[in-house]
Amino acid sequence: MEIERKLLKRSSLERLVDMMRSDGNMIYAPQKKETQVVFDTIETFADMTEDYIVSNQSPKFVAFPKIEKILDFSISQEGIRQEGTQLAAFPPVVVLGCRPCDADGFDSLTAIFNWDYKDELYNERLKRTTLISISCAQKDDYCFCTSVKGHPGSTRGSDILLTRFDGGDYLAEIVTEKGKALTEKYAALFEADPGIEKDKFLAEVKPRFEVEGLVQKCMGMFEHPVWIEQSLRCIGCGACAYVCPTCACFDIQDEAAVSKGERIRCWDSCGFGLFTIHTSGHNPREVQSQRWRQRVLHKFSYMPERLGVIGCVGCGRCSRACPVDMNLSEHLINIAEV
């Protein structure tokens, strides 16, 4: 649909939060918790912080929770009973204040969860989620969205994109039917297009590399020694995967006590040594350089080739979170140059 522009005054956004909440939506927004900014449920607009570049953890968990129950089971004299997670019971969710890169991340996840087999656990959660993103007025040296087809003011992936302008009011760009339905439901809060020039209120993120060329190059990089050099200091902690808005790898485990329990799907990381190990002890990705190669090539070669999407949105979280200061965008520039 064609993007509609409206004015959402700051006071109206405050009321919108209250009204959406009283209509039964769970509203996730960035909050300051100790030294971090994390997405958690808010009760009023005042609970939210606007002072962040990107949150420490991505909002992907609203559609792909860290731990998702697949089924409950019980074991008794009568036998085994199982009950699958009731998808219809997922609550309606609004994510307020995710960044354009975060919204972009859901496109990657959707591609992974829907090639061939449709993962309705993910799809149902996303279907019930409305993304009200806020464009980026600030950036830091880790941001590289413009190198991977993103932009501080990109509407892609968002249902509504807000851009804060002078005085604290917002330009609201209505991107999807879902966003439109929301503005129609709360029509009194959305006013006529403020007619501002959006770009004036966006951070400037300069492109660092040319991604199409990088993707092409990565296809022939499997045997290159660059993976060894770059990963020498990687400790395989997996932090990068846990903060990443597009990482979708998971494990399936049973948790049980005597006669009942649940089967869960939980986040995992290709950086872990145990990720691919066979029961026999054989491990196809035996050393860290092979795991680092998998991480980079999965995002910049396998996903573009198989799914038509790049598995990276340039949010820079992996590099901010890395305890040994591996910087993804620098490594990508290095890969493009070697």
Partner: peptide, 24 residues
């Protein structure tokens, strides 16, 4: 071929050999 798998349908991310998924 066999590789360690969790999902069996190309999502859990561990059976691939390069761009090729053993499960799919």
């Amino acid at each position: 071929l066999e590789n360690r798998m969790k999902c069996g349908f190309g999502k859990c991310g561990r059976c691939n050999i390069g761009k090729v998924y053993v499960c799919k």
